[in-house]
Nucleic acid binder design. Structure first.
Length: 228
DNA sequence: GCGACAG
DNA sequence: ATCTTGTCGC
């Protein structure tokens, strides 16, 4: 069951970050960190958002891919007004409205979604990808380029596909994944309906010759282009 | 008090 | 995120 992505009565940013953080803790309790997606996967979708220079408009992109061939089946971009400034830890409230709009533009609900941002590797275990997952009830994986919170103890080999644990306060919250040798690792974490152990390999399944997995990489490209 | 701080 | 040239590396 999908959850309301915004707190009751919340429509625009009023500076009350504490209220949003409290709401995140409620939603975080609804995140399911277990594999619950169709098998075999038929389609996957990647999501990302870009902003214009005035930070007035959010350009959200969605790319639908064939999960087996990685062929691009659909691409969509929507332009939505920005309702909130960037506040570390509250990214979901800033980008979700636009992401939900592009999701609606897809002709089918993807079997799995990749979102450019953290899943549960977040201070309150509700990064953008987890927020998206709970709001849509779609199996979701968060793929970020940098750590928001947490640390890894063991070394990460410089080999394609190598990964190591990311933990915070003793809890396993995600992974550092070397998607490409010589490049900084990706921070991968479950967003919703995906098990912790599944996230790295599932992400690698969509990594070709670039650091980012195709769903998120392609979505980022068209979001930045602001068309197509 | 001093940094850190997804996109 | 976005503003930006050349440059190093595969």
């Amino acid at each position: 069951m999908a959850a309301d992505p915004l707190p009751p009565g919340w429509s625009k940013w009023n500076g009350d970050a504490e209220a949003l953080r409290a709401f995140q803790e409620e939603l975080a309790a609804r995140v399911i960190v277990k594999d619950a997606y169709p098998r075999p996967l038929r389609t996957v979708a990647g999501f990302d958002v870009a902003f214009d220079e005035n930070d007035a408009t959010a350009h959200a992109a969605a790319v639908l891919l064939d999960a087996t061939t990685l062929d691009v089946l659909e691409t969509h971009v929507v332009h939505a007004p920005v309702r909130m400034p960037y506040v570390s830890g509250l990214l979901g409230f800033r980008e979700l409205p636009a992401l939900l709009e592009v999701l609606a533009a897809l002709s089918v609900r993807p079997d799995l979604a990749f979102v450019d941002g953290h899943g549960i590797a977040h201070p309150r275990r509700l990064g953008l990808a987890a927020h998206f997952g709970v709001a849509t009830d779609l199996p979701t994986i968060g793929v970020a380029s940098r750590i928001l919170i947490g640390e890894s103890t063991t070394a990460l080999h410089d080999m394609r596909g190598a990964f190591t644990t990311l933990r915070d306060e003793g809890r396993h919250i995600g992974w550092l994944l070397r998607s490409k040798p010589g490049e900084s690792p990706l921070v991968v974490s479950p967003g919703h309906r995906v098990a912790m152990a599944t996230a790295p390999e599932m992400t690698m399944r969509f990594v070709t010759t670039h650091r980012l997995p195709e769903p998120t990489r392609l979505a980022g490209n068209i979001a930045a282009a602001r068309n197509g």
